[in-house]
Design a protein around this nucleic acid. Sequence first.
DNA 1: CTTCATGCAAAACATTTGCAGCTGG
DNA 2: CCAGCTGCAAATGTTTTGCATGAAG
Lengths: 144, 144
Amino acid sequence: MADSELRLEQMVARLRERGHRITAQRRAILEVLARSVGHPSAEQVFRIVSTEFPKTSLATVYKTVTALKEAGEVLELEFSQDSNRYDGNQPYPHPHVLCVTCHQIVDLDLTKLGDMADEVTGQTGFRILTHRLDFYGLCPKCQE
Amino acid sequence: MADSELRLEQMVARLRERGHRITAQRRAILEVLARSVGHPSAEQVFRIVSTEFPKTSLATVYKTVTALKEAGEVLELEFSQDSNRYDGNQPYPHPHVLCVTCHQIVDLDLTKLGDMADEVTGQTGFRILTHRLDFYGLCPKCQE
DNA sequence: CTTCATGCAAAACATTTGCAGCTGG
DNA sequence: CCAGCTGCAAATGTTTTGCATGAAG
């Protein structure tokens, strides 16, 4: 996983240049997010980090995630019922598919998305900053 | 607003056929959602309905919204920090622009969206049930 | 050393649930 | 009538905050 190691070092560098300190468990949190397998929730990050640092608290995970959000180094997918999910591997907006049964999240690479922002600006006068495109459905396994 | 009256009667009919009763305050809730000016939150619906029925509770709004969701008669836009917003006027998924400053929500009509679901199925094998496409930005007024 | 990070517990939210009494059909 | 609706209050679950202690740089 050389990719996620590179990504980890990018995240560390960005936090440092913003005046943040890198502690051992903070680095562990970043590691999980840099990998972002399955787009983990804060709780899931917490559980993984806990195996290595048993005294870590959920609050620390949230505080680190907040710092990363401010640095633009993690993408947060908000949900109101379920908890939020995080992607530190691709921290810019990109489309996802979510399985409504097993809650897995898969990245997408859609071609037709490019000029939509321009279409929106032309239609509304909004200056578009970001966006969110999620599809909801049944993954191959959960279709039976 | 003959449109929203028609919409209101549709919602009433759908709830009735699903075995729900129509009380006075429930009808008032439906009225606000049928109009859906500004895509109100549960709290906002509650406040509007409260002027006519001062003893209404927020729980009743949520229970009615839940019934409507199950009937597919309201679209729920989920947020984790801010509260959810509801559209009873167009209860099927459609794109929105959200102003990050004044929190207004505007409907969009994008042409290029059609065949995206097919592209997703081809790419992942998911059976797509619904989707969500939201743009975030600054509305003309909030750009100064 | 000084400032920031940590971990705990408590607070802050939006939303849901339990329940006794009310009411639509 | 009686199943479903109401309003209240309490519970839930996620995220945030306050604060004393500890460690990074």
